[in-house]
Design a protein around this nucleic acid. Sequence first.
DNA 1: TTACTACTTATTTTT
DNA 2: TAAGTAGTAA
Length: 1127
Amino acid sequence: MTNINELLKDLNPAQLQAVQHSPQIPLQILAGPGSGKTKVLTMRIAHLITNCYLPPWSICAVTFTNKAANEMRERLVKLIGKDNTGLIKMGTFHALCAKFLRRYAKYVGIEGNFTVCDADESKKIVAKLLKQHEEFLKDNNITMKEGSMLSMISKLKAKGLTADDALKKVAEFKKESDQERTLRHLRDQTKPDILEGKLGHVIATVYKEYEKLLRGSNSLDFDDLLLFGVKLFAQQKKASSWCQHVLVDEYQDTNTTQYELMRYIAQTSRCVTIVGDPDQSIYGWRSAEIENLANMKRDFPGTQEIYLEQNYRSTAAILAASMAIISQDKKRIQKTLNTSHPKGPNPVLRAFPIEQVEAGFIAAEIKRLVAFSGGMLNWSDFVVLLRFNALSRTIESALQKEGIPNRVLAGHKFFERLEIKDVLAYLQLVDNPAFVPAFTRVVNVPSRTVGEKTVAELLHRAEQLKISPLQVVERIVDGNIPDIKPPVKKKLGNFVGVIRDMRKFANEGMSPSKLIQALLDLIKYGEHLRKTQLDYESRWDNVQELINFAVEVENGMPVAAEKQMRDAEDAAHEELWGDDLGEWDADQVEDRSDTPLRLFLQASMLSTDTETPEDEKSKEKVTIATCHAAKGLEWAVVMIPAVVDGVFPSSRAEDVDEELRLLYVACTRAQGLLYLTHTTTRKVSGETMPQSISQFIAAVRSESKTRGTFAEDLPTLSLQERETLSKVLNGRPLPDEAEITQRVAEYQRTSRHPVWGPNAPFKDLPNAPVNGYGVPQRYPAAPVPEQHPRFPGNGRVLLPPQQQKPPQQQKPPQYHNQSRQLNPPQVPPMFIASSLVHFNDTHRSGIVRNAPQSTSSASASASAARKPPSNGLTVSTATPLTSSSGRVVNAAMTRALPTGNDLRNWIVQPGSHRGPTADESPSKGKGKAKAVEQRPRSPVKLEPSPVKLEPRPVKLEPPSAALPAVVRPKGKTSTTAVKTEPSSTPSVHPPHPQARRPTFPPIKPEPCTVFPPIKAEPYTGPDWGRPAMPIGRLPGLVKMENSSACVSGLQLHRSSPRSSPADGRPSSSGPSFPSSSSTASSSTSSPAAPSADASAKSTAVKRRLGMGRATGGYTNKKFKPMMPGGS
DNA sequence: TTACTACTTATTTTT
DNA sequence: TAAGTAGTAA
Ligand SMILES: Nc1ncnc2c1ncn2[C@@H]1O[C@H](COP(=O)(O)OP(=O)(O)OP(=O)(O)O)[C@@H](O)[C@H]1O
């Protein structure tokens, strides 16, 4: 365990100021990306415990994701030890609420065994309800899908509106005629409320019915967790009396209900610290309210702000590019963000004809960077950030083809699979017999010949008798009530038996993992899968993986600590409040609400597969994730494909600025290298359409000041660049030259690259003759890529350049129309699929000749080329092409488009996952490779580049002059760790009605109408300057000398090894799929089979294991390469 | 009434 | 790509 006060010395003055800020003065730490916000928050927690003597259990730390919570725990273990860390109330708002609601459920009118209803089930419920309103909707010409209905309900809940509130509002609105309302909106320039009009009526009604169904099922959805949490803390002050400090990370993304939660949890201590960055608010679609910053100032008078202005994460070039992007948000308040690192390579911006080539580039470039960095970069240093998950397909297969191990973070996907849901539904039903969605899911799994009609009848009967459908079945089977129309008594006897057996096991305290195994045996689930699913083997693997997950949860469960903590809390409560707040009623408090089964089910509902256990994560893998999931994380190299209109911003986006911020968040994840790529075409229902670059990037390119932020040329990883990389990667050791030489040689021998190297097919295409592709295009005034240094050995033995780049000069912005000297073709014809197009060396005016197999779309495009562009299909004017004859042309106009398959063939040899060797001609069987080798190379031509090397530090924006540094940092004795200038001056602002330097657009705080205001009461708590209690008597504070238990500090909570406790072997390799000969009962208890190859694991297992979709190609010899054209 | 096969359709972002 | 849906045989 490290002494926290030693570590404090590494902070810069502003950071230190934030950490040591007086606990009782509410604090907002507002700072840009990479400024150490999370680090400061973590240190502040440690400081509060170590130096301010707050007991750990009195601290509430709220993170945005479970993963963030786990990471913070890991960091804290090193600072304050495992035991103390375990006592801190840390987690997402949802997880924290669930925890309290289990215990105090009765106080808010629910049962402690409530089931968390996931979005899928909610959707089904809403869909059913919507059907009942089908006609009304049709009559009123309203189309409403369950998805949007659910998000409407969610929006209402996020604002704290109950169904009754919504109905009341609808009634209010009904007093006004449609016309009056329209007029009012016109007059006041207001947007219609979602509860207005006929639709509002339906929404409120469905909301009400939905709530009724959930309550009837003893179930809470995600939003309910928060709403009932608020209810609990609002009604029961003693539920939050333990809390002496609330800290909230990613505050800019909290919604109204979450804010209310924070307010209530902090109601007794009034001690709050939040960190956030308005520029990184990307959850507006989930009702996040940036106004919460203002609300906090309103409700916590005396709130002070501290700004952190030093970025420690990224190179200056990356930061400059990020600033160029975010600056387009005109409503944004300008902020200072200083770099701590050298400029580094320019972020790369590249265009590609189609998605597959783009993905191929990403894969090839990752490989190249690993080689050219001499292994300084490894797979886990790379992330591909996507706007949405569906984009991962192409990337995954490209990485797979190159044999690059990868993992896809796809949120909750694993738990959405049918085999997982089946098993969970059984367990849910065992834990909560009233949970109807689980009942309907599993009554007929495996088939008991109980179909739709029968189930409907059971539900109907349940409603009549006011009991749960499970109870109906039980009573029928027991003979207590008559059977229903399609008789069921015989068919469901076994079902009831299963549930009862399981119930018994659970009550006897059987662990969730064992319960699952028992269930699998009881219902012969393996057999059922084999009968019903084609891919039963992979599904069975998934079930096994669920067992592993259960074991993981079991290992992370609090054992005795929980009881100990409660005793400590009670003692403290007594000490602090005496009888003032009243006692808990023993009848109402559920002491045994945290059963292992319940905790497991809850973890299944609340966790995402982002939280891959440490041992799996540490296996080197490229990460593929959405930009949203990347929040708060960092990687050495970030690649963002599909930076096109319709994706960034999404064509469905309601708030374009939020999309801009999302791109900003994605870019600022990068430490050393950043790549944005885009395609020039896209497929729309089989038709190839031109695709324009993201408006956000087009704007950066058209602005003279920011024009040079992105470059087309790839980083050479010169010594200087490697040194910069080493620096941003916290001093990672530089590779030695021999290593580089060897790796580069190996790379050259085995790999191909669409852009890099003399024969690269998609290299510098604008200079090449028109070749029939929607080619990568030269951007106006883009820095001209300098010639890649040539290496000896004619493309065989390549070494990265040791010298620095030649000095680069400013080049005047170059637009079309300039007759430029054209280089001889640099694109060898071998890469232009011979079947598609030929280009003519001497005649460079862009003749497109369709080859035999050319698709109709290719010829269509070719002929379209002669027509003027029409109906909005033009490529963005920001990216005109300079044709070889110097005209400005449109990509779509001039290029015949290849089919995906044709192009794919040129990126990676189909069927080869390691790339072609030198001998394997890229155009296998086409006999063109030799010709390529003999083709004369283009003369080396160094063109001036407009890239200006700025002196560092790069001050990206002038510091606000209006910055009144009212509170100076306390005298700092040691020198700061701020490596480079300029050290940021902490700026602490006193509360001021019109803060002179607001960090968000001025917002008039709205009176909170939904929740009753908390009475501001005189503070009666302990004096924070001194220990609240004599240290020796502090109940929960574990002595810190006892550090042996946390030396490594890493085996906390969820980091349990992923192996079965019994044999130590990975338990995912446990029971193989029960063969038809083996009896079902022996299937799950049979000894573990030898571990299968990673590639043998099912897709979903790999996903949950963070192995990506199919990564076997990397290490696994059994890996079967993809068939050409297959997917 | 249920079970099976073939076709359709939806995929922004997440707790 | 995988889940839901419609249509048909048993
Ligand atoms: N004083 C410091 N000296 C050196 N490195 C620091 C310092 N403060 C923070 N860092 C490093 O900067 C990086 C970013 O820190 P952190 O993730 O806490 O930033 P953040 O402000 O939370 O970023 P974001 O807003 O993007 O989530 C981390 O790698 C961290 O170790």
